[in-house]
């Protein structure tokens, strides 16, 4: 952070020449570095790039025309639309919940804080299938409120509300987890400064807190979105697999695959992968574009 003028004068050419060329204490030998690099790259290639390449190859095996036709299928198209709808509802909800939870945990002391922090991690530690089952037990026809919902014509399971609930539950930790350490590190003095200058609570949040956390928030939202679109387990349980109605993209991939319709299955899979890739590229592009500002906001 500080550009210390003495630092450069110490490393004057004269002194440097006088010193023997010793490697820094933390640097490894060439061989060790090479081995580590190759191991990491091989791992990435084997477990990340190869499957991705396989998905795209399979999808385009019978040419781009088939690929486009597969995506144009009415049921597939409805699955794409449903996935986008669910993500469009679930992600903003978790944005709000996540900011609220992180704010409460990072800036306030209250009873049950440790409990809340643990609860936020719950969706990560519970199998998604169980997350889905929870909603079936809660809203199913044999549950306590199931009959009441039915008599009032409210459909939660096997409909969009159920899908949204399951997705919200599974993707809940992403935004909060990203923000809590960031907000804790930043402390409350920026907010206190704003309040002491006469800003209202809302002005403080809008002009001070939000700009301080915006990069962490964006990252959390992108991850949350990627997971919301790709979620399979929990959604599978509450969806009911009604074709053209409650099948999301991951579910549609499974159905098509089970029907040996490989080109279509991989076409949808490729599209899903593409959405994830776009998310990552977007994030990287933003990081490069605003690298200086991100670095500044992480400093004290």
């Amino acid at each position: 952070m500080s550009h210390d003028p003495t630092a450069s004068s110490v490393a004057s050419p004269g002194r440097q020449a006088a010193l023997p060329q010793l490697a820094a204490a933390t640097s490894e030998s060439r061989l060790a570095r090479l081995t580590l690099t190759i191991t990491a790259l091989a791992f990435v290639a084997l477990f990340l790039l190869l499957p991705l390449a396989a998905v795209f190859t399979e999808a385009l095996r019978k040419g781009p025309a088939e690929f486009v036709a597969a995506l144009g299928d009415a049921e597939t198209f409805s699955a794409i639309r449903l996935t986008l709808t669910v993500a469009a509802i679930a992600v903003p909800l978790n944005l709000v919940f996540g900011v609220a939870a992180a704010w409460a945990i990072a800036k306030f002391e209250f009873k049950g804080k440790a409990f809340l922090t643990t609860l936020i991690d719950l969706p990560f530690s519970v199998s998604p299938v169980i997350s889905g089952l929870v909603f079936v037990l809660l809203f199913g026809s044999h549950s306590l409120i199931g009959p009441w919902l039915q008599s009032h014509g409210i459909q939660i399971l096997f409909a969009v509300p159920g899908l949204v609930l399951a997705t919200v539950f599974v993707t809940f930790p992403f935004v909060a987890r990203e923000l809590i350490p960031l907000m804790q590190e930043q402390g409350s003095s920026d907010e206190e400064a704003a309040l002491s200058l006469g800003a209202s609570g809302w002005q403080t949040f809008w002009h001070v807190t939000l700009p301080n956390i915006k990069w962490g928030l964006l990252y959390g939202v992108l991850l949350c979105n990627a997971r919301a679109m790709g979620e399979f387990g929990a959604v599978s349980v509450v969806s009911g697999h009604i074709r053209g109605e409650t099948n999301t993209m991951p579910l549609q991939v499974e159905i098509l695959y089970n029907e040996y319709n490989f080109v279509a299955a991989f076409a949808v899979a490729a599209l899903l992968a593409l959405l994830a890739l776009i998310t990552l590229i977007l994030k990287t592009a933003l990081e490069i574009r605003y690298s200086a500002e991100i670095a500044a906001s992480r400093r004290h």
Partner: peptide, 18 residues
């Protein structure tokens, strides 16, 4: 704190970095 109209200077500045 808003109504008191005070000026507060923090040890670590607490400037708005953005």
């Amino acid at each position: 704190v808003q109504q008191r109209n005070i000026g507060f200077v923090f040890q670590h500045y607490a400037l708005f970095r953005h």
